[in-house]
Structures are given as C-alpha cells and as structure tokens.
C-alpha cells in the first residue's frame, strides 16, 4: 500500500489537515478526501478549467497540482466564495445573466473570474475572453458568461 503524507494547508481561510498519497492531485484531495466537490474533473490534464481553484493568490488547475504541494499554502475554492447569507457579486452576476446551463463548468469559471477581477478589476471584453480561454463551456457559447463577468466587474467597482 502506498504511504500517505500528512499535509497541513489553509482552505477557504480554515486550517485543514489531511492525509494523501503522493500521487493524488489537489483535485482528488479536495473531492475525495475533503468532500469539497465544487471543483469538477472534466479532463484531468489541464485543458478544461473545471477544477480551477486559487492557490496562494494564483489561478491553477487543481488537477495539475499535487495534494502534497499545498503544504503551508492557501487554497481558495468555490465553497468559500459566498458569505453565509449573501452570494459573491460574481455568483450573483452569473445567475442574473443566465450564464450557466448545465452548471458543471460554473465553479471553475467563477474562480477564474475571481482571479481575473482580483488582478484586473476593469477588464475589456478581449481581456475577459483571453483570460477565460482556459475554461471550457459546452452549453452557453460563452456570450452570457462574458456579460456576467462584465457585470461582476461593474458591481465590484
């Protein structure tokens, strides 16, 4: 049997400890060990962005990060975005713009959008499209997602 490592990290502001095999990705740890299933597996090789989380302030595909690599780091996931009684403005903007259909890519898009607006609060349409090109959506044709991001930027301004 593989030997598991003990890892201490911060997830959505809370200190979290877990055991994981060295081959387990952060995505596997989030989903299978910690039951934070908001990050989704669409491709498991960094092409679809459905597993996007923010690691020490940087947007990553959690399928391309090993669980053990998060020792001492800080992870933000979709589960940590809303306040108990209030959605994050990005979440509101996605709902108001009908920017989701099946919703499987939505957590990834929202985390990706958060990373964008954290670094560039007032992006142009082209900057939005360029930034979000790492997130695949097969349902919407992206039109309403781009509009939601534009609205979220306005709401946060």
């Amino acid at each position: 049997m593989a030997i598991k490592s003990h890892v201490q990290t911060t997830i959505n502001g809370e200190t979290v400890e877990f055991l994981c095999e060295s081959r387990q990705s952060l995505l596997e740890v989030l989903r299978d060990e910690l039951h934070l299933t908001g990050a989704k597996e669409g491709c498991n090789n960094g092409n679809c962005g459905a597993c996007s989380v923010i690691l020490d302030g940087r947007l990553v595909n959690s399928c391309l990060v090993l669980g053990v690599e998060t020792e001492g780091k800080s992870v933000e996931t979709i589960e940590g975005l809303a306040a108990p009684d209030k959605l994050h403005p990005i979440q509101d903007a996605f709902l108001e713009n009908a920017a989701l259909q099946c919703g499987i890519c939505t957590p990834g898009f929202i985390m990706s959008t958060k990373a964008l607006l954290d670094s560039n609060p007032n992006p142009t349409e082209h900057e939005i499209r360029y930034w979000l090109a790492g997130n695949l959506c097969r349902c919407t044709g992206y039109d309403k997602i781009v509009r939601a991001v534009q609205d979220a930027a306005k709401a946060s301004a």
């Binding site: 908001g38 989704k40 979709i78």
Partner: peptide, 23 residues
C-alpha cells in the same frame, strides 16, 4: 419573464451534486 433559475444558487456555490460527486 426572466426569473433566477431555481437550482441557480446550488450551481454557483458548488453545492449542486453531480454524478461523480456522490459519496
């Protein structure tokens, strides 16, 4: 009219459970 979809909050918060999320 264009109301907010009923399953919307679950889907923007990562709480909606898809097949692979079942434990």
């Amino acid at each position: 009219t264009r109301p907010i979809r009923h399953d919307g909050v679950d889907k923007v918060t990562g709480r909606a459970l898809y097949g692979a999320d079942f434990q």
